[in-house]
Design a protein around this nucleic acid. Structure first.
Length: 471
RNA sequence: GGCGCGGUACCCAAGUGGUAAGGGAGCUGUCUGCAAAACAGUUAUGCGGCGGUUCGAAUCCGCCCCGCGCCUCCA
């Protein structure tokens, strides 16, 4: 089985062959920390987290670099509002980002380089670009001259000529072409700034990614990713300035872009103001429910946020968790090695499901298909369990199989905890079991009600009474 | 104006030439002191519409309708 990846550059699914196997260099465009992390960010970083996890699962050694744009116009504006330094503001929201990403079980990148810590290298690049004739200076800063770079537009498929007559192209006097973009911005009054040959200022947005990605991954590397909205102009501009500077083509072998989160069929975005922060979403839904929700649609398709869909994900996730809880319960109760059904009877069939998961993931990280495989596996196990007494090894293998499948997708399936001590509950359950034996159903139901008041649900099974905290 | 993505059941969503995964919701049944869970059956002779290619199409081609995105900061 070979891994296939959709490459934005070629607009085609290609076999994934890294430049220097088994090493894989992956750069993901990170956040600009000026506000709380929202669901759209969640989708992007869960997408690349799954990609990274699957690459590692497939035997690759991934170096994952993700930048932090800790200086830009929005940060400056907001830090003034809050009367803090831009550094303090960026720090605050960067920490907040890590908090919610940890909850989503997004693995930490290998390194999170910050723009402000690479200013000198960026100045070096800009200087080089001017010397090579790809950039020019105006009174307010330095610009990249798009017309000097022949391949401009190859990533996004946009032709320079088409853009210039378009309705939404920036109008700014002085630039040789409306598409020329800023490499260095001279500081206005009281803006944070760094020294440069072109005066005090700060770097343009795109240059940091070129500089930091190549610094940590080399002048050419395997994967560069980000949200679909970054494809143009951000990634197009990065490509232009990087290939112009290094002369090495292609800079990036595989470009991967994730689709948006929509609300009412419209893109969730800061400018539309229709975004949900992850912190707020977590008030209502468990982070793993959110993760499952995000994984149930292919990463390149739009996904619609709604309570109905999150609730469906909550039920679905509950099914996985309950399966593991039920297995744990049976394991506790299974003392002898009853062997109506033995491991060897089911091993082959059970193995089919992880294979299906791999096949889905190999096909451009089809997480929706992979999730389907998990549920099919659970259904198979449930059915098998219903057919008779099962060997301990069977139960253990089933549990292991499901948990491993979930782990590939970064889904944690921890049992639900209770606020009440289990000792108290077990005591009441024993009392209730005795009452049921004596057909004192009044007492039995009273105990059920009493525990329900403490958010404890009871479930009578052929193997005894099971309890769980209500979700 | 240019470029691109998508339309699969009541809802969400895989499937890109071989006869419609999975989840949610509903209904029916089995089981059960009750409750729940679980399992089984069920809800698309059909995948936006109309043509075409093919032994065979949700999948390929053409036209049309509808929704969305990028071209401005954005994951």
């Amino acid at each position: 089985m070979t891994l296939k990846v959709h490459n934005t550059l070629t607009r085609d699914k290609e076999e994934f062959i890294p430049l220097d196997p088994p090493k894989v260099g992956m750069y993901v465009c990170g956040i600009t920390p000026y506000d709380e992390t929202h669901l759209g960010h969640g989708r992007a970083y869960v997408t690349f987290d799954v990609i990274r996890r699957y690459l590692e699962y497939s035997g690759f050694e991934v170096t994952h670099v993700q930048n932090v744009t800790d200086i830009d116009d929005k940060i400056i504006k907001k830090s003034r509002e809050f009367r803090v330094t831009s550094h303090e503001l960026a720090e605050k929201y960067t920490q907040s980002y890590f908090e919610v990403m940890d909850k989503l079980n997004v693995k930490r990148a290998t390194i999170y380089p910050k723009a402000t810590e690479h200013i000198e290298e960026m100045v070096g690049w800009i200087d080089g670009l001017i010397k090579k004739g790809f950039a020019y200076q105006l009174e307010d800063g330095v610009y990249f001259e798009v017309d000097k770079f022949e391949d401009y537009g190859k990533l996004s498929g946009k032709r320079k000529e088409d853009q210039e007559s378009g309705a939404r192209v920036e109008v700014k006097s002085g630039k040789k072409s409306p598409l020329d973009f800023s490499l260095w911005k001279k500081a206005k009054e009281e803006e944070p700034s760094w020294p440069s040959p072109w005066g005090e200022g700060r770097p343009g947005w795109h240059i940091e990614c070129s500089v930091m990605s190549t610094k940590y991954l080399g002048e050419q590397f395997d994967i560069h990713g980000g949200g679909l909205d970054l494809e143009f102009p951000h990634h197009e501009n990065e490509t232009a300035q990087t290939e112009a500077f290094t002369g090495k083509v292609p800079w990036v072998k595989y470009w991967i872009h994730n689709g948006f989160v929509n609300v009412n069929r419209q893109k969730m975005s800061k400018s539309l103001g229709n975004f949900f922060t992850l912190k707020d979403v977590f008030e209502q839904f468990d982070p793993m429910v959110v993760r499952l929700f995000l994984l149930s649609t292919h990463y390149r398709s739009p996904i619609n946020y709604s309570d109905v869909e999150l609730s469906a994900a909550k039920e679905a996730y509950g099914r996985i968790v309950k399966f593991i809880e039920d297995i744990d319960f049976r394991l506790k109760k299974t003392t002898e090695r009853a062997s109506e059904i033995e491991l060897e009877d089911i091993e082959e069939e059970l193995g089919h499901f992880p294979d299906k998961l791999k096949a889905s993931m190999d096909d451009d990280f089809n997480t929706a298909g992979a999730v389907g495989a998990i549920f099919e596996a659970i259904k198979f196990c449930r059915k098998t369990l219903g057919d008779g007494d099962v060997e301990r090894e069977c139960l253990e293998t089933m549990k292991k199989t499901i948990i491993e499948m979930c782990e590939v997708l970064g889904l944690k399936v921890a049992s639900r905890e209770s606020r009440v001590t289990s000792h108290e509950i077990e005591k009441l359950i024993k009392e209730r079991e005795a009452a049921r034996k004596n057909r004192d159903f009044k007492r039995a139901d009273d105990i059920r009600k009493q525990l329900a008041g403490q958010m404890i649900e009871l479930e009578d099974t052929p193997h005894g009474t099971k309890w769980k905290a209500q979700a």
